[in-house]
């Protein structure tokens, strides 16, 4: 029965743009930012690491994909791979330094990393395009026997959907495996986890790098479907300084339910809906709502 509902929902989502074309652009946003929230959920929800700079890996993924197309004339899958690799590399370096620190140290390092990357991206505008960004022509998506132009709205829709499903698959496998158990053990009690023989540093680093890679995948898909990147992707707190921001992953995770599989995606959907709803009626209400979500979640947090 459960499996049937799942299949039904999936079919519904898959057929949606055929019924209502307007849903496609909206859906693309939901899937990409949902994947981004999913990646933060691996860190915050499963492992208890609060990162305020997850956007860096999204941006690295986007730039990795864009650079490989612009400078390397890469094909579609190579570009996605390059984006993910870029993000993985960045996450490995930052994670190596940050996960051994206390919870405050971790937050500070993730935040300052975002600021440093943003400044570098603005300063090195000849390769990043600065705040104007860079447009490029995305290569066609090649599947066995199929060549799909990314400029087609439907192709972009299914690409984003595929990426999200892939992310959900990884998250599901991890939550059911021993690794997921290790992550939660570290979240709930680091010292006890250490006592049981877990290498806390390795477990945290694994979560950080995996989350970085997932954010990188979201970024690569974003860049390829927009055919565009800009330095502002690195900007720390980007979601809180713009008037109609993209859904912030942390708020999405808090709004859904941290540590659950679908919660972050649902949270992203709510944020997008709120933006759509309030954006036309009362734009400041959206940002205010985000603050209230964080504060109430924090005040009524059990831990």
């Amino acid at each position: 029965m459960k499996r049937l509902t799942l299949l039904g929902a999936l079919a519904g989502v898959g057929l949606l743009p055929w019924v209502w074309e307007g849903a496609a652009l909206w859906g693309i946003n939901l899937f990409i930012w949902g994947l981004m929230a999913l990646s933060l959920n691996l860190l915050y929800g499963y492992t208890g690491l609060l990162s305020l700079g997850q956007g860096v890996y999204f941006a690295l993924g986007a730039y990795g994909a864009a650079w490989s197309v612009i400078y390397g004339h890469a094909g579609f899958w190579t570009a996605v791979g390059a984006g993910i690799l870029c993000a993985l590399g960045g996450a490995l370096i930052v994670g190596w330094v940050s996960v051994r620190t206390s919870s405050f140290g971790f937050v500070v390092i993730t935040l300052v990393t975002a600021l440093i990357c943003y400044l570098l991206a603005l300063g090195l505008d000849s390769v990043t395009g600065g705040e104007d960004g860079m447009s490029f022509r995305a290569p066609a998506l090649k599947l066995p026997g199929l060549v799909l132009p990314i400029q087609n709205l439907f192709v972009r829709y299914y690409l984003a959907l595929g990426a999200l499903l892939g992310g959900l698959g990884i998250a599901y496998l991890i939550s059911k495996s021993l690794v997921g158990l290790a992550l939660r053990a570290v979240r709930d009690d680091e010292i006890a986890a250490e006592a049981f023989g877990y290498n806390v540093f390795a477990v945290k680093l694994f979560a950080f790098v995996l989350a970085g890679g997932m954010a990188g995948m979201a970024g690569a898909v974003w860049a390829l479907s927009k055919e565009f990147v800009r330095a502002g992707l690195f900007q720390p707190f980007a979601a809180f300084v713009s008037a109609q921001p993209d859904p912030d992953p942390l708020i999405a995770v808090l709004l859904g339910k941290a540590g659950t599989l679908l919660g972050p995606v649902v949270g992203t959907g709510i944020l997008l809906g709120l933006r759509e709803l309030l954006g036309s009626m009362w734009p400041p209400g959206y940002a205010l709502a985000m603050g209230i979500v964080v504060l109430t979640r924090a005040l009524f947090r059990s831990a």
């Binding site: 960004g133 800009r230 008037a243 109609q244 954006g279 036309s280």
Partner: peptide, 9 residues
């Protein structure tokens, strides 16, 4: 809707 002075938007 608001183009936000951002190229992608």
């Amino acid at each position: 809707d608001d183009a936000q002075t951002k190229p992608d938007v």
